[in-house]
Design a binder for these strands. Structure first.
Lengths: 260, 260
DNA sequence: CGCAGTCTTGAGACAGATCAACTCACGTGG
DNA sequence: CCACGTGAGTTGATCTGTCTCAAGACTGCG
């Protein structure tokens, strides 16, 4: 209610209105959401822990993030608290997904492994209690439906990725990743495209289920084939997205099974 | 409107009311959904194709199903129709998830690979147009929220599975799978538990990103360690779910990295 | 009973992990 | 402004888990 807003806070709320509450039946809905949401400036490397009180929804107004998860298997294991600390100490933490400006990320309390959002660069986020957000949203058909559509979209993206990770070679995974990033970061799906990857090779490997060395080798091979060029650590230029997408789908030479 | 219902159709609608429209503000919502939904008896092995007209929502009133997907990579590739037939002919079809009684499955039109639902045993399903279902559901806060909660649940399950598939050994994946199935089919998460797996070894392997032979070997190893026993093709008895879950999380002997 | 498809078991090959050096980008401080 | 150091990225050698190919054994159906 106070008027002591950062300019970035005001901007963030604007983005929230235009993205989430677009088409809201009543302008009041947007106002209530803005009031509920807690603005946060998350510096590069900063982490947003899961709220111990309940599921969270995080709206990304600006920046990019990785969703981390600890692979504590299903079971409701409260056998000993050491199981929890294990999550911290060991290398059970993996990148589940990347999220960018304008997306809503669900950070569940703890459904089989706990989740957290880590900033890849300075970010403006708006944090909500999932329950209270939905209490407001459910009264406005356009808004709740928007949220549902987004979560189904995330589900399908996750399923598609799962399909890729489960059954594709390192080459295919990396090619897929680059094509997907071009589409999400530049909205390019054909021709050439230059992008600045906000995540490290390690993050890429982690999200694809590969080691950092393997990712590096795949980049080298793609470079040798003239499909990409790289400048510095983050700039990657895709020379021909179509051809790259070809690499992603076809099983290439790999034993070239006689598929007629 | 006609009264010529199969008894299973009537039963299915009952299940729909009790599961999806539970707590609906107006009983009218349930009635409208029942009227919209198209009942189908899907015999074992039968497939429900994606509706060419739009996304589908399928409610499973009885039985078990696998969600299949073709890994046509992201890109809006309409380069040649042979890309589509490739989906049919080659082994690009993989099991994305299993679904059981009482669940709602989203079968999207075609967002980067097409999806279809295949019956693992005789099933009673109720098929909806996603848009028309949501048109009705969005007017009833309790119902739309129920649907949203379910889709977020599916998203988290998918993410957890992705984490597993991306970073775990064959042993861990199979153990995880068995633990998860015990929880979903028998609601058992500790002690012993006997379950009849409705899916084949091939389906299991496919969903875990493993070959049928590897799955078989893992079953043999678990059997040798006294963690499971099997009877016939589908009956599996988990002797100690807790210990099995242990196998699932710990990286075991595998180079046993010095984790203090 | 016998067939067909599913599952199991074995031997060999390969993609990717692991371990270990080395190089390079980039920010810091002299 | 350039030497310096740290951490990210690259490259190479080796090892191993899983895939592949190929028989063989069992289940469950007609």
């Amino acid at each position: 209610m106070a008027t002591a807003f950062h300019s970035s806070e005001v901007t963030s709320m604007e983005v929230l209105r235009s993205v989430v509450a677009r088409g809201a039946a009543s302008p009041d809905t947007a106002a209530r959401l803005c009031e509920l949401g807690e603005y946060r400036l998350l510096p590069r490397g900063g982490e947003l822990q899961a709220d111990p009180k309940g599921d969270r929804l995080v709206f990304i107004a600006e920046g990019a993030a990785k969703l981390l998860g600890c692979s504590v298997p299903a079971q409701t294991s409260r056998r000993d608290s050491s199981a929890l600390s294990a999550c911290e100490s060991r290398k059970n933490i993996h990148v589940l997904a990347f999220h960018f400006r304008g997306e809503i990320v669900s950070v569940p309390l703890k459904s089989g492994g706990d989740f957290r959002l880590a900033a890849l660069c300075d970010m403006d986020v708006i944090v909500f209690s999932a329950n209270r957000f939905l209490d407001i949203a459910q009264d406005d058909p356009a808004v709740i439906r928007n949220v549902l559509a987004r979560s189904l979209e995330a589900l399908h993206r996750s399923r598609t990725r799962m399909m890729q990770i489960g059954h594709q070679s390192a080459r295919q995974r990396v090619a897929c990743f680059l094509v997907a990033m071009a589409e999400r970061l530049c909205c390019c799906s054909v021709g050439a495209c230059e992008l600045a990857l906000p995540m490290s090779r390690g993050d890429i490997g982690d999200s694809l289920g590969l080691t950092i060395e393997t990712v590096s080798r795949q980049f080298a091979d793609l470079r040798a084939e003239g499909l990409i060029t790289t400048h510095g650590r983050s700039i990657v230029r895709l020379m021909d997205i179509g051809r790259l997408a070809g690499k992603a789908s076809r099983s290439e030479k790999l034993h070239s099974r006689r598929e007629t």
